[in-house]
């Protein structure tokens, strides 16, 4: 909230607010990343890296599904944690082009726990953490795949009409875009 009178006097309330929020985020992430790295130790599907050293709120996630339609593909995700974390969920973008009912070709992801304003129990809540996000993203290639509530309508329709065509298009995309 911006208070105009204080702004005129040169008091930037927003900056003070953001400083506090960032401080909270850093403290939460320090603990969460520690847990997450422990859980991902020896995990062959998910690999988490930090592109800039010392910056915890920008992560790079690599998922290599070992089962299902997407086996053999290598999928890269960019995770950015906003300053208002954990009142708001992390922002995730898929960097690899994929033929998937819940990920569109621009990299937008439809995953319930990443939804900020959700009316059901599956959306984001401050009790969730980064480990849930990473596992949620990994499951998107296996059991969380949802053809009934699709983001990529065409992919979902193709699956419903002809499963073989869908599967071959997925393999085609893996061959073209998801090999490294």
């Amino acid at each position: 909230m911006i208070n105009l009178q204080k702004r005129i006097k040169g008091v930037d309330e927003n900056k003070k607010y953001m400083d506090t929020r960032i401080c909270i985020r850093e403290k939460l992430l320090t603990e969460e990343v520690k847990d997450l790295e422990r859980t991902l130790m020896g995990d062959k599907v998910c690999r988490l890296t930090f592109p800039s050293p010392g910056v915890l709120h920008e992560m790079h996630l690599t998922i290599t599904p070992n089962d299902g339609f997407y086996k053999g593909g290598i999928y890269h995700f960019d995770i950015k944690v906003p300053a208002e974390y954990n009142n708001v969920p992390p922002v995730v973008k898929c960097l690899t082009r994929v033929w998937h009912p819940n990920i569109n070709e621009d990299g937008a992801i439809c995953l319930s726990l990443l939804r900020e304003n959700s009316l059901d129990a599956f959306g984001w809540r401050p009790t969730r953490n980064m480990t849930e996000v990473v596992h949620g993203l990994a499951s998107l290639f296996t059991d969380l795949m949802d053809f009934d509530d699709p983001l990529n309508q065409q992919a979902a329709e193709q699956y419903q009409q002809n499963r073989n065509n869908f599967e071959s298009k997925v393999r085609d995309y893996i061959y073209k875009y998801a090999r490294q």
Partner: peptide, 10 residues
């Protein structure tokens, strides 16, 4: 809470 502690340190 974390917020009050963050405010207190600053």
């Amino acid at each position: 809470c974390l917020r009050c502690q963050a405010d207190a340190t600053k």
